[in-house]
Design a protein around this nucleic acid. Sequence first.
DNA 1: CACACCAGTTGATCGACATCAAGGCGCGAC
DNA 2: GTCGCGCCTTGATGTCGATCAACTGGTGTG
Lengths: 242, 242
Amino acid sequence: MCGMTRIDLSLAAPSCSACPIRHRAICATCEDDELLRLERMKTYRSWRVGQTIVMEGDVLPFVGSIVSGCATLTRSMEDGRTQMVGLLLPSDFVGRHDRDRAAYQIVAATDVTFCLFRRAEFQQLVRDTPHVMERLLKMSLDELDAAREWMMVLGRKTAREKVASLLVNILRRTATDVHPIRAELPLTREAMAIYLGLTIETVSRQMTALRRDGLIGLEGRRGILCADLAALQAEAEIDAAP
Amino acid sequence: MCGMTRIDLSLAAPSCSACPIRHRAICATCEDDELLRLERMKTYRSWRVGQTIVMEGDVLPFVGSIVSGCATLTRSMEDGRTQMVGLLLPSDFVGRHDRDRAAYQIVAATDVTFCLFRRAEFQQLVRDTPHVMERLLKMSLDELDAAREWMMVLGRKTAREKVASLLVNILRRTATDVHPIRAELPLTREAMAIYLGLTIETVSRQMTALRRDGLIGLEGRRGILCADLAALQAEAEIDAAP
DNA sequence: CACACCAGTTGATCGACATCAAGGCGCGAC
DNA sequence: GTCGCGCCTTGATGTCGATCAACTGGTGTG
């Protein structure tokens, strides 16, 4: 931290129509005139890897979408035990339109850029525009389903299955479609451990074991390769049906 | 099951204005004229303890609210490992207005009564009535927060903390306010284990240990007493701030 | 170049919870 | 009554992942 060059990470917000998350984020169902309203409301803001965006309980005067990069939602107990409860990737929505305090700590897992709206303005938009509210509802219900899937992982899977499940998720969401498929892990081993309810050492051992068993390949610290996603899915005990 | 008397558990639906969950369920923000519309749409239906209401993947043509009793949402892996992902108590909402298949198995944990709406009709209601959609959104976001709290329990808490956390939740939601406070557990030891990612035996041992340590009292199989909820909360490592 | 530092890996040991097994208690059937 | 059956408790043993500890390789620094 000390010695880090202080820089302005605010960016001029580009046009919504050229936005990489235009068709997946909260704005997916908006018409051109509504996009104009959004463009007048929105602000882009970026954080460097490792920076804390908000602490648990802090006032969070914004809501918004991840445009690029990756951030984590975590909760901590007084003795330091920490659990990740959300992994934010591009197009994911952050914050509650009806609450002004963050229930979770939000940290930049990589350099990350958000498209933000002031809470009060966004709340008005939601009330004026039923299809935006419905979009928000749909995205919230999808997140709830993801959280429940994750509860299965945390409650019942072995360490090997947990690690395989996380890798499958990341490969599915971010992999290139060349063969073997390849993805860049947005998480350190520590963040993976916090995600999975494990320790760093166990994550590391399971990664090594999956590589030894020929299920994945490792390229440096962050690169993962997979020649047979179905085999890795089987290891994760994920139902074949998508 | 065999030999069980087959009975009709459908009930005439009473007036919404006399409904026990009138001010907490999806209808909480409805005016009188809207209640009339709901009364024309709704059907009451009951299930006996232990009955499966829907299986994972089944078509679920209804959505609705729990009026009385308790039901569980669970997911299972092919080898039989099972995790509870939702605990439904009176006023909780079940089903997605925009999906017609159940993502989870739903089972009656006690005798249970639902107030149901046909999916298509309910979806129309939601689209006609923005404040109902907002209510549904708020309830979904609250459920998401509860799921994330639960992820902390599953990922990081010890068996003792897990059991204490569950007891605190149930005492807070259903206890009488006499002293010592008292609640009826809506779950068997097995259901508690499936909720907490533990085995029956571990749940039983932790219940015994909490009783031995004077933190709770047990009355038969289902009754629990607690003279000092703050002490039990401390045991659960729940932040004091509500 | 030597050094520190950090993320990650690997090994040895420990302990919490799972597993396997036996027995208790309440309750309905006959 | 007593038999059988669910649900629960308790005990003995096993095992997976945590913990403690040492080490590696890459990167930045004086």
